[in-house]
C-alpha cells in the first residue's frame, strides 16, 4: 500500500502478513484459511480502532493525503458537464483556484475551489493549492457572474492557506480576501461550501462564506495552520500535534461550535480509500441543498446568511 500514514503502520503490517500467508497457502498447498480468517478479523477490528479514534493531528495527515480527491475530482464526479473559466480580467490566471460553470443533475451552477496537485510537478503548477490575489479575484468574478444569472455557487475548500509570498503581498492578498468576504456575505444567490481537505485560515474563508457549509469527516478547518500555531505558541513547529488538540479543528469540533452545518461521512480510512463513494455522498448533499435553497428568494438567502454569521462567536456581557 502506497501513501501509508505513520499511525496506519500496525494495520499495514497486519495486512502484509495476511497477503504473505495467502501466497504461502497457494504455493505450498497448506490450508491456512482458519489462520487467515483470524488475522482478517483482527485487521478489521484494528482498522475500526485506529480510524474510529483518530486524533486531530492524524486527521490533518489524512486531510493532506496526496491521494485524497481534489476539487477537480469532485467537479468531474458531481457535474454532468463543466466548462472551466480562467483569469481575473486584471492580472492573470491563478491555477491554485479553479472555477467555471456547469450542470449538476441538470441544475446550472457556478463552481469554484482551491486546486492542489497530486505530485510535485502538478503541485508546482498549482502552487500547492495556495492562491495569489488573482485566484481569489477570479473566484469573485465568477461568483458575481453567477449572481447576475441567478445561478447558485458551489465552493470546494482545500488549501493550507493563501500564498505567503512577496508577489502575493505586492498584489494585495489581504485586500483580495477582504473583498471576497464582503461580496460573499452579500451575494444574492445560493452559496454552498464543502471543506474537502484542509481549510487553512483566511485563504479558505475567502471561498467559504456560504448559506450552508459542510466538512468531510476527516477534513480540518482552522484559523492558522497547526504548524503555524505551534510556532507562535511554543516557538516550535514540531508541537503541531499539540496545537491540533488545542485548536479544535476537526469537522466534529466545528459542528459543535455551530460553525458548520453538517459532516459528510468518509469511507473507513479516509476519502482516498474510496473516492467514488465520497464523491457520491458530496453530490447527494449538494443536489438536496440546491433544490431546497432554490425555493428561497435571493434577498432572503442574503439576509439569512448575514444573520448566520452575525451570531458566530461566544462573548460575555458584563
Amino acid at each position: 500500500m502506497s501513501g501509508e500514514l505513520p499511525f496506519e503502520k500496525p494495520l499495514v503490517e497486519l495486512e502484509r502478513r495476511i497477503a504473505e500467508l495467502r501466497r504461502f497457502m497457494e504455493t505450498e498447498g497448506i490450508d491456512l484459511r482458519e489462520e487467515i480468517a483470524r488475522l482478517e478479523e483482527r485487521a478489521a477490528s484494528l482498522a475500526r480502532e485506529i480510524y474510529g479514534n483518530l486524533t486531530p493531528y492524524q486527521k490533518v495527515q489524512i486531510a493532506r493525503h496526496p491521494d485524497r480527491p481534489t476539487t477537480l475530482d469532485y467537479i468531474r464526479g458531481c457535474l454532468d458537464v463543466f466548462l472551466e473559466f480562467h483569469g481575473d480580467r486584471c492580472f492573470g490566471d491563478d491555477l491554485a483556484v479553479v472555477g467555471g460553470i456547469g450542470l449538476l443533475e441538470g441544475m446550472p451552477v457556478t463552481v469554484v475551489g482551491h486546486q492542489r496537485g497530486r505530485d510535485t510537478k502538478e503541485n508546482l503548477m498549482r502552487n500547492f493549492g495556495m492562491p495569489h490575489p488573482e485566484g481569489f479575484r477570479k473566484a469573485l468574478r465568477l461568483m458575481k457572474q453567477a449572481e447576475r444569472f441567478r445561478r447558485p455557487v458551489v465552493c470546494f475548500i482545500d488549501t493550507s492557506g493563501a500564498y505567503p509570498g512577496m508577489t502575493s503581498e505586492e498584489r494585495g492578498i489581504g485586500m483580495a480576501i477582504a473583498e471576497n468576504l464582503l461580496a460573499m456575505i452579500d451575494l444574492r444567490t445560493a452559496v454552498l461550501c464543502v471543506v474537502t481537505g484542509e481549510g487553512g485560515s483566511g485563504g479558505a474563508l475567502a471561498l467559504g462564506v456560504a448559506d450552508r457549509v459542510y466538512m468531510l469527516e476527516h477534513a480540518v478547518y482552522s484559523v492558522i495552520s497547526v504548524e503555524g500555531a505551534a510556532a507562535l505558541l511554543w516557538k516550535d513547529a514540531s508541537q503541531a500535534p499539540r496545537a491540533a488538540e488545542s485548536m479544535r479543528i476537526t469537522a466534529q469540533d466545528l459542528l459543535d461550535l455551530e460553525v458548520i452545518d453538517g459532516v459528510i461521512p468518509e469511507p473507513l480510512g479516509g476519502a482516498h480509500k474510496d473516492p467514488e463513494t465520497v464523491i457520491r455522498r458530496v453530490k447527494e448533499v449538494l443536489v438536496r441543498d440546491l433544490r431546497e435553497l432554490s425555493e428561497v428568494s435571493p434577498d432572503d438567502l442574503r439576509s439569512r446568511r448575514f444573520e448566520k454569521y452575525r451570531k458566530m462567536g461566544r462573548v460575555f456581557e458584563g
Partner: peptide
Amino acid sequence: ARMQEGILSLMQMAKTSGAV
C-alpha cells in the same frame, strides 16, 4: 485573528464583513 478562539476568530472576519 486570535488563535486562542480558533475557528470562531476566523468567523469574526465574516461577521465584521457583514457589518461593513
